[in-house]
């Protein structure tokens, strides 16, 4: 579906189901230079299991218009506008990477709108290397290649995609290549500059789920502990042999964790 949010047209994947305000809702928020399709399996599941699903393309990404929002706080402030535009009063937020930081910040800012948060591949701080930021700033293709390499665990870099016939390294690369010039740098800078993670976690009052890839190089497990300590009500699921691209590497395990929580 398409909605007008803050003056810009936004695309949300709904699992080809209409939005029914009487049903519970889940908003999926993607990571840097990605779009709604990274949650294809998981979002479709919830759309066909009694939930409204908004798997959003953030502004300046995928099918959504406008420029990318330049901070985690700005994207978090945009979330209630999205809910207003789609007639949803309250939703659970599931975010990956940059999207996880957005979910965290939004839950701390808008407790009456966010019922639960699922943080997939979170890290606080989410430090981005200068080499990667430089490459992204220059729109150098190397930035996409670095992320594709660092996002997948060593075993999955040789394949073994649970989705038959799909080469996940190629899919990850191709999706980022479709991002608009400069979008990756804006997103990575937002991750790198976000400094409110621990304070936001301490302010969150809703239940939180953290899904951690044991072999995540982009958001290392050791960078999750601060969040775990700060969140009042939390559950942690660690996926063995899994990298940052967890929805692709272990889609069923991610879905099972989400389904048990949401």
């Amino acid at each position: 579906m398409r909605a007008q949010v803050g003056g810009g047209e936004v695309y949300c994947y709904t699992g080809t189901r209409p939005i029914d305000p009487s049903r519970p809702s889940v908003v999926f928020v993607h990571g840097a230079a990605n779009d709604h399709s990274v949650f294809a399996l998981q979002s479709r599941y919830f759309a066909h299991h009694g939930r409204n699903v908004l798997a959003v393309d953030l502004p300046g990404h995928g099918r959504s218009a406008g420029a990318p929002l330049d901070s985690v706080e700005a994207i978090a402030d945009w979330i209630p506008q999205l809910l207003d535009a789609t007639g949803i009063r309250e939703a659970a937020l599931a975010g990956h990477s940059l999207g996880a930081l957005v979910a965290l910040e939004a839950a701390s800012r808008f407790p009456s709108r966010i019922s639960r948060i699922a943080l997939l591949g979170p890290a606080v701080p989410m430090t981005v290397s200068e080499a990667l930021l430089d490459a992204a700033r220059a729109d150098d293709h190397v930035a996409f290649e670095l992320i594709a390499g660092w996002s997948h665990s060593a075993g999955k870099q040789l394949g073994g995609n649970p989705v038959p016939g799909m080469w996940m390294m190629g899919t990850a690369l191709r999706l980022m290549e479709r991002s608009r010039p400069g979008a990756l740098h804006v997103d990575l800078r937002a991750c790198n500059d976000y400094a409110n993670g621990i304070a936001a976690a301490a302010a969150v009052r809703c239940p939180g789920l953290l899904i951690v890839g044991a072999r995540d190089l982009m958001a290392p497990p050791k960078a999750v502990q601060g969040l775990v300590d700060a969140l009042a009500e939390k559950r942690v699921v660690t996926l063995p042999d899994c990298g940052h691209a967890m929805m692709a590497e272990q889609p069923d395990a991610v879905l099972d964790a989400l389904a048990a929580f949401l």
Binding site: G159, G160, N161, V163, P164, G165, M166, W167, M169, G170, T171, R174
Partner: peptide, 13 residues
């Protein structure tokens, strides 16, 4: 399918 996709530099096959 994955192997040929990888060798060709595609997303799948």
């Amino acid at each position: 399918e994955e192997r040929v996709a990888a060798l060709e530099g595609g997303v799948g096959a």
